[in-house]
C-alpha cells in the first residue's frame, strides 16, 4: 500500500520527525520506532538500503547525521521508495538552503508541512521539485502576511 511511515532519526536514535500513514496505537508506533531504529542504526555502510522487518520492508538512507527511514509492504518497489526519500531530502535542502539536522529540529513543523506536499496517504503526490516548493512558499507568504501585524506580541 505504499509507504506506511516516514521516520527521521538521528545517529543517536533521537526521533526528529515521525509520520504515520496508517492507523496505529501509540504503543505500536513506539515499538516500531524502537525496533526499526535499532536495526537501521546497526547497519554498516555499503550494505543495501533495504531490510526486512516483520512482514514489511524498511527502506532507509543516511544523510549526514540523519537516517531517513520508511516502511513499505513487502511487495512494493524498493528503489522507487528510496528515491522518494531522496526527493524529500532535495526539497528540504532547497527550502532551508543547505539543510542540516538543526534546521529540522528548530523548524520541525515546516518539515511536516513539506512532507505533506510530497506524500499523502503514503503515496507520492508530486514529484516535481518546483511544484512542491511553489505550494510551500505560497503557504509561507500567507503566514508572512499575518506575522507582519503580529510580531510585537512575543515578549
Amino acid at each position: 500500500m505504499g509507504i506506511k511511515y516516514v521516520l527521521l532519526v538521528s545517529r543517536q536514535g533521537k526521533v526528529r520527525l515521525a509520520k504515520w500513514f496508517n492507523t496505529l496505537s501509540p504503543k505500536e508506533k513506539q515499538k516500531i520506532i524502537k525496533e526499526v531504529t535499532q536495526m537501521v542504526l546497526s547497519r554498516r555502510t555499503k550494505m543495501c538500503n533495504f531490510l526486512e522487518y516483520k512482514d514489511e520492508k524498511v527502506v532507509y538512507r543516511r544523510y549526514a547525521s540523519l537516517f531517513f527511514v520508511t516502511g513499505i509492504s513487502s511487495t512494493d518497489n524498493e528503489l522507487i521508495t528510496l528515491e522518494i526519500i531522496h526527493r524529500f531530502v532535495e526539497i528540504l535542502d532547497r527550502y532551508f538552503g543547505n539543510v542540516c539536522e538543526l534546521d529540522l529540529i528548530f523548524n520541525f513543523q515546516k518539515a511536516y508541512f513539506v512532507l505533506d506536499e510530497l506524500i499523502i496517504a503514503g503515496e507520492m503526490q508530486e514529484s516535481s521539485k518546483k511544484s512542491v516548493l511553489r505550494v510551500v512558499s505560497q503557504q509561507d507568504a500567507l503566514e508572512e502576511g499575518e506575522n507582519g501585524e503580529k510580531g510585537w506580541q512575543e515578549k
Partner: peptide
C-alpha cells in the same frame, strides 16, 4: 520561511542542552 516563535525556539534549545 516564516516562523518566529521565540518561546518555542528557546524551549527547544533548552531541551537540547
Amino acid at each position: 520561511m516564516a516562523s518566529n516563535m521565540r518561546g518555542l525556539t528557546v524551549f527547544i534549545a533548552d531541551i537540547r542542552n
